[in-house]
């Protein structure tokens, strides 16, 4: 789905005159946005013609590591939890500091060459404004409602994560020092999940307890996410459905709804 060098050249020429027109007309905001687009198009042209693939090949392993951990959890997650899941179940090191620029890099890559990768790592969207939710990563291929977080989602996703981690532990027979702290992290804060001894977390009990509490919240949570997803499909373009509504759009959505 990569853009051909010819079409890129055309687009670059078009963008150049658009920047010039915007500047001449005094519209600095538009000019800035157009220039960013121009730079991205030039980057893609360079990659398409000179080869070399992604600008930062070093990103690949990190994004794949994150992809593994997120796929295991199946719900939006914060970098801290992603790293903990990675450390418990996967080999190699994943430093949380390397997750900070990830989302921005992914968005840049998507904008310069849309859909050229099988998946992108994006921010979850907030249900009210469909803006990027700070510090929560998702995979672009997940269904839209899964990628949106409402007021009940932090708790519901915490419980779903617990269930997924418990299931994975049972399925793979994983255990030992790497997995125990992760299980305890969930068990300590779910009613009925902790054993009689501190730090004793049995995956089976965790699974039962988390499933029981999730049952309580899931109806409201799913409904809110579904409604927000419908709104997102109506109001947002492709890029925004993945990376969130921009500030101006968010402000527009706010207008008239505030008391």
């Amino acid at each position: 789905m990569r853009e051909s060098p010819e079409s890129l050249e055309q687009r670059i020429a078009g963008l150049r005159s658009a920047v010039r027109r915007a500047l001449a007309g005094g519209d600095r905001t538009a000019a800035r946005a157009l220039r960013a687009e121009l730079r991205a198009a030039e980057d893609s042209w360079e990659r398409a013609v000179l080869g070399g693939g992604d600008p930062k090949p070093v990103l690949l392993p990190v994004r794949e590591q994150v992809h593994h951990a997120l796929s295991l959890l199946g719900v939006p997650a914060a970098p801290k939890l992603i790293v903990a899941v990675h450390d418990a179940f996967f080999s190699g090191e994943l430093a949380s500091s390397r997750l900070t620029s990830l989302r921005r890099d992914e968005e840049r890559s998507f904008r310069s060459a849309p859909y050229s990768r099988p998946y992108y790592l994006c921010a979850a969207l907030t249900a009210d404004l469909l803006a990027p939710a700070r510090g929560l990563l998702v995979i672009s291929t997940w269904p839209l409602p899964t990628r949106i977080v409402g007021p009940y989602s932090p708790r519901a996703d915490f419980l779903t994560s617990a269930i997924r981690v418990a299931e994975h532990t049972l399925r793979t027979g994983a255990g030992g020092d790497a997995v125990r702290p992760l299980l305890w992290r969930f068990a300590a804060n779910i009613p009925g999940a902790a054993g009689d001894h501190p730090h004793d977390a049995d995956p089976r009990r965790l699974l039962t307890a988390a499933t029981a509490e999730l049952e309580v919240h899931t109806g409201k949570d799913t409904e809110q996410r579904r409604q927000a997803a419908d709104r997102a499909r109506r109001q947002l373009g492709d890029v925004e459905q993945l990376f969130g509504a921009r500030l101006a759009a968010a402000a527009r959505a706010q207008n008239g709804r505030l008391p």
Binding site: H217, A250, A251
Partner: peptide
């Protein structure tokens, strides 16, 4: 368990 984050409005 519902939480509302009020530290920013769409960024």
């Amino acid at each position: 368990v519902a939480i509302e984050s009020l530290d920013e409005v769409g960024g």
